[in-house]
């Protein structure tokens, strides 16, 4: 038995305080504690990638990160990218290429794709497939996702 702890996080550029159980999942801190519902739970075991976020510059599966470890860290979620009025280039490419179908894996897929494309590397499909190996999509067969990542990847600074 433990007590809840107060965490201080930088979330999408803003300082946020939130109470959580030390071993609570970062995923739950984001969704329940902070109301950021864009990060999704698909499997709860680090397999599907729907819950990936950027923590201190690294892509992580938020269902496997304990809340206490996230204390003091800087987190970017899908809400930290562009809103509907100002999509970032990856989000726009997902729209243009038809890469989102049901939309449930999409936030994680976009976070992972953005992490993959940092530095503006242009990638072939094989390296994108490898880079997105931890993100499962049941709708698309990945073809249009690969096309979107390729399109946006080259356009990145």
């Amino acid at each position: 038995m433990s007590d809840q702890v107060e965490l201080l996080l930088q979330v999408n550029g803003a300082a946020r305080r939130v109470e959580a159980w030390p071993l609570e999942r970062l995923l739950d801190v984001l969704r329940h504690g902070l109301g950021l519902k864009g990060t999704k739970e698909g499997c709860g075991e680090g397999e599907c990638g729907s819950c990936v976020v950027i923590m201190d510059g690294k892509l992580v599966v938020s269902c496997l990160v304990p809340a206490l470890e996230a204390d003091g860290s800087s987190i970017t979620t899908i809400e930290g990218l562009g809103g509907e009025a100002g999509l970032d280039s990856m989000q726009q490419a997902f729209v243009d290429e038809g890469a989102a179908q049901c939309g449930f894996c999409t936030p994680g897929m976009i976070m992972a794709a953005n992490a993959l494309c940092q530095g503006g590397r242009t990638m072939d499909h094989a390296s994108i497939r490898e880079g997105l190996a931890g993100n499962l999509c049941r709708c698309t067969g990945y073809m249009k996702i690969l096309a979107a990542v390729r399109k946006a990847g080259g356009a990145r600074p």
């Binding site: 992580v60 496997l64 997105l132």
Partner: peptide, 8 residues
């Protein structure tokens, strides 16, 4: 695993 698990 995938990139996110390799990071952890």
């Amino acid at each position: 695993g995938g990139v996110a698990n390799q990071n952890r």
